[in-house]
Amino acid sequence: MSANECMEQFSPHLFWDVRKEDIDLDAHAQYVIQRVLEYGLLGDWNLIKSYYGLPKIVETAKGLRSLEPRALAYIAAISKTPKEQFRCYTWKQLNPQPWNS
């Protein structure tokens, strides 16, 4: 599947704030993967899984500074990777907030 075909099949709500034509799936992989993990539907997940492959998605997610707790739990469970290996988990543990917001 080509990058253009893949971009056309994503849910419209994922990239509501940018022009889809300007997104390069290879150059903006971190942005696309984070959006799909946090806001995507099952079909969107299947698209990035077929385009990038699970190992690339996991490696990219490990480097993300922030990721919603549900998305972190999902990618950790799917890949059987401990949460402690993800940057967003360790960064949050090292920088506690004075209260939950």
Rank of each mutant, 00 (worst) to 15 (best):
M1A: 08
N4K: 12
N4D: 14
C6Q: 05
M7C: 11
F10R: 04
F10H: 01
L14T: 04
D17E: 10
R19E: 12
R19A: 11
I23F: 08
H28K: 09
Q30T: 13
V32W: 10
V32N: 03
I33D: 00
Q34A: 15
R35I: 07
V36H: 00
L37N: 02
E38H: 00
E38W: 00
Y39N: 08
I48W: 00
K49F: 11
Y51E: 03
G53W: 07
K56G: 00
I57N: 01
T60N: 03
T60I: 13
T60R: 01
A61G: 07
K62Y: 03
G63F: 03
R65F: 11
R65M: 15
L67M: 08
E68N: 15
P69Q: 12
A71L: 08
A73N: 10
A73D: 15
I75K: 01
I75G: 04
I78V: 12
S79R: 00
K80T: 11
K83L: 09
K83P: 02
F86W: 02
F86S: 09
R87Y: 09
C88S: 15
C88E: 07
Y89L: 05
T90K: 05
Q93C: 06
P96Q: 09
Q97I: 05
P98V: 11
S101Y: 12
S101P: 01
